[in-house]
Amino acid sequence: MRTITYSDAINEALREEMDRDPNVFIIGEDVGTMGGVFGVTSGLLSRFGAARVIDTPISEAGIIGAALGAAMMGMRPVAEIMFGDFLGCAGDQLINQVAKARYMSGGKARVPLTIRVATGAPGASAAQHSQSPESWFMNIPGLKVVCPSTPADAKGLLKTAIRGEDPVLYFEHKMLYAEKGAVPDEDLLTPFGCAGILRKGSDVTIIAIGSMVKHALSAAEKLSSGPAPISCEVIDPRTLVPLDVPTLVESAKKTGRVVIVHEAHKRSGPGAEIAAIIAEEALDYLDSPIARVAARNVPLPYSPALEQYVLPNENDIVRAVKALYR
């Protein structure tokens, strides 16, 4: 077990998978010479060469389309989209081609394609460099949606994505790149569809996604002390598609109270789907309405003061949990 950053964990996963399988290659904007705009792919060009770490033009549709075609021909591309906001530029390739190729070909097309996407608000970056677009793609059968919140999950989920058979949108949060955590030394393959119960509790279930997981954990810690302590169970779904419904529903039935936390906008965010599933499968067990803590429904503003007002934080989680008891 070592303590490394989330960014280094991603880099290790890429390096190990490229060492292991010559069909794995990286393609994206500034992934080679620059090592990625956030430095995540640094050192890979010198290790694997320009044929396997491919700097591209600024052409998101071209990148995703090229990765798709290569995947269909037996390669295992790892494409990088520099900011999640740019996924729109690759819209048709992602939505109509990548996602549907296997199904509409009657299973003839194989698309083992991982798309790494930098997600979330890095601070004062305004509305086109700050979005959390995970839930846009939950509505498209054929894509998998992965949201690691720790260095260990970042490594293990990425390796699972690369070795898998399907297109995966792997959302890495910009504000987690420098976070440190323990990562096992052995080959780490974290399964999809297996939520992590990060803190056991009995009163409230907090389901938190991506960057919000650490805030949920500190909120749970705060709530556990004081004159009226509340015991919170904190669950990280890790993957939104596939979603570990049994674990989420079981916890909701046990605690009877649910708060869902994510950085994406509240309206039709991942929490909307999770809340609906819990309502469908555990409504009779609930002692209060399901609460959501999420970004307010406006484009993310540039001003740090305005941005902080729009984005959810630890105090919002504490307030939302306490409000369940009003």
Binding site: A51, I64, A66, G69, A70, M72, M73, Q97
Partner: peptide, 17 residues
């Protein structure tokens, strides 16, 4: 035009292979 980028990807794979 949906298939054109895909053909480029296949060609990229052929060059790599």
């Amino acid at each position: 035009a949906g298939g054109i980028p895909m053909a480029v990807g296949a060609a990229l794979a052929f060059k790599m292979q």
